[in-house]
Nucleic acid binder design. Structure first.
Length: 505
RNA sequence: GAGCCGGUAGCUCAGUCGGUAGAGCAGCGGCCUUUUAAGCCGUUGGUCGCGGGUUCGAGUCCCGCCCGGCUCACCA
């Protein structure tokens, strides 16, 4: 056990019963010599420091000049060379070489660096910029300050931190040691920032709606339940913000979007985390055709401003996001795969069930009609959809919040946007007829009674909102984690979530 | 939940047929003023995930458990 004492600025190491003050001790094989405190409050070099090492380097590349700079960063390399020391300090943006000379720093400070500065420490430096013989931009250090001590040894410098369990449990170490991890999360931030820009451009208003909801609706999923003491009632963590966002359209917001977490009480695997990030957006006076164009445009915008190309490698495949993206109708795709058309699937349930059993859909014998169609589609169609594809015009049975198709009462105006078999987006012309919506909810209740645990609950307040008049509206949700998986070319959702869910140790 | 794979030094990894637990990095002591995975010489460091069992002897074989990964399920 270690603690700091403010009075005499010494480290205490508790060994068995005795308490022994030391200024030097070994921690995970690393010898620590500590003089004074482990961190300093009034850090001169810290407060003067440049914002970003990368910006500093870019500035110097544009207009090199003999200037003094002040920098803060984590020491990630030290190379002692007798009367000189080279090293690197790193921040999130990059790293820069530092060069310390005995004849510049003086005997005492030079020795202090050798004795007291370790890999991992947060160091402030001040000095002149120059280029070495090999051309590397380097700070010739005139002053330095230990800003914060690192007590643990850092992960191995060449291989980084590989153990995935450690990388997720101690993400900060992953970020210190692995450039790839840093770049993924910077990319994530960039994508979200670009999305906001894009929505701004179209006049969308960013809003926040409840995460704690009295009824978990708006999607087919099992919710987390929590309890509110004061109100003495159960609340659910939202599975989707959909109904609240549509209430805002009723209230007169013409276009809204929300970026936030949804929570689903289901399994954890390569593509599922119990909390995940979605952007949902709704635009009045649009229909799903407008959303198709909008989605195409957004993906082009995101790709051009991040990867700088519309063609990206994902695993073994090359994805081409050159618009227009492929469009295919739901039942046409099903017919192509099964030889059976819409009339078959919407006809006799038992015939559909028979087909499902032939296709080895699990538990086909007890699924509802809607679930049977859904599972057959997932089984035969989704796995083949690699290139960006809009699947259009879903059956009404499995889309309780979408508006009936203007040309076919069995269908709704809905699409899913599928890339590399991932369902990246789900969108539809919103159902804005309160009577129809009520009937659809009643259908859902029937499904629930027939055993579909994920069927949606009736939301009376939402119906009431529709009764006040929801303008014609189209809405869409995009899974941001899945999108990042594609852009980062990773097949695990944990690689794009900073702190993924793991069992406690 | 099932099957397979993995857990050995702070980190990255070896460990043969069951016979005294290894390397590199990091650390420590030296040498070295343009190095950059610096180099060279020397050196410290282990509850082999945890608990049982078999055996003269277990990192290694057997059983159970924990954690993680992959695959397939579950999500009645």
């Amino acid at each position: 056990m270690i603690r700091l004492s403010d009075e005499n600025l010494e480290i205490f190491v508790f060994t068995q019963e005795q308490v022994e003050p030391k200024k030097e001790y070994i921690f995970e094989g690393k010898l620590l010599r500590v003089e004074g405190k482990l961190s300093i409050v009034d850090a001169k070099l810290g407060s003067e420091a440049e914002n970003s090492i990368r910006e500093l380097k870019e500035r110097y590349d544009r207009e090199p000049q003999d200037e003094k700079v002040s920098l803060g960063g984590r020491v990630v390399a030290i190379r002692e060379m007798g009367r000189a020391i080279f090293g690197h300090i790193q921040d999130l943006s990059g790293k820069i070489q530092i060069y310390l000379r005995k004849d510049i720093l003086g005997e005492e400070r030079f020795k202090f660096f050798k004795d007291y500065i370790d890999l991992g420490d947060i160091l402030g430096v001040k000095g002149r910029l120059f280029r070495t013989q090999t051309g590397e931009l380097t700070v010739e250090v005139e002053e330095f300050e230990l800003l914060s001590k690192c007590l643990h040894p850092l992960p191995e410098k060449w291989h980084g931190l590989r153990d995935v369990e450690l990388r997720y449990r101690q993400r900060y170490l992953d970020l210190i040691a692995n450039e790839e991890a840093r770049s993924i999360f910077l990319l994530r931030s960039k994508v979200i920032s670009l999305m906001r820009q894009f929505f701004d451009r179209y006049g969308f208003v960013e809003v926040e709606t409840p995460i704690l909801q009295p009824i978990a609706s708006g999607a087919a999923a099992k919710p987390f339940i929590t309890y509110h003491n004061y109100l003495d009632m159960n609340l659910f963590l939202r599975i989707a913000p959909e109904l609240y966002l549509k209430k805002l359209i009723v209230g007169g917001f013409p276009r809204v979007y929300e970026i936030g977490k949804n929570f689903r009480n289901e399994g954890v695997d390569r593509t599922h985390n119990p909390e995940f990030t979605m952007v949902e957006f709704y635009a009045s006076y649009w229909d799903y055709n407008d959303l198709i164009e909008f989605t195409e445009e957004m993906f082009v915008f995101l790709l051009e401003n991040t990867l700088g190309t519309l063609k990206l490698r994902y695993g073994e495949i090359e994805l081409d996001f050159t618009p227009p993206f492929k469009r295919v109708r739901y039942f046409e795709l099903l017919e192509e795969k099964t030889g059976r058309g819409k009339e078959f699937f919407l006809g006799n349930v038992e015939e559909v069930r028979k087909l499902a059993m032939e296709l080895e859909v699990k538990h086909a014998e007890r699924l509802t009609h809607a679930k049977l169609i859904d599972k057959i589609f997932e089984k035969v169609a989704e796995g083949d959809l690699l290139q960006p594809t809009f699947v259009l015009d879903f059956p009404k049975l499995i889309s309780p919040l979408a508006k009936t198709h203007r040309q076919d009462p069995d269908l709704v105006e809905r699409f899913e946007f599928i890339v590399a078999t991932y369902e990246l987006a789900n969108a539809y012309t919103e159902l804005n007829d309160p009577f129809d919506q009520k009937e659809r909810f009643l259908e859902q209740l029937k499904e629930k009674e027939m055993g579909d645990e994920e069927a949606m609950d009736m939301d009376e307040d939402f119906i009431r909102a529709l009764e006040y008049g929801l303008p014609p509206t189209a809405g869409e949700g995009i899974g941001i984690d899945r999108l990042l998986m594609l852009l980062a070319n990773t097949d695990s959702i944990r690689e794009v979530i900073l702190f993924p869910h793991l069992r406690p140790q």
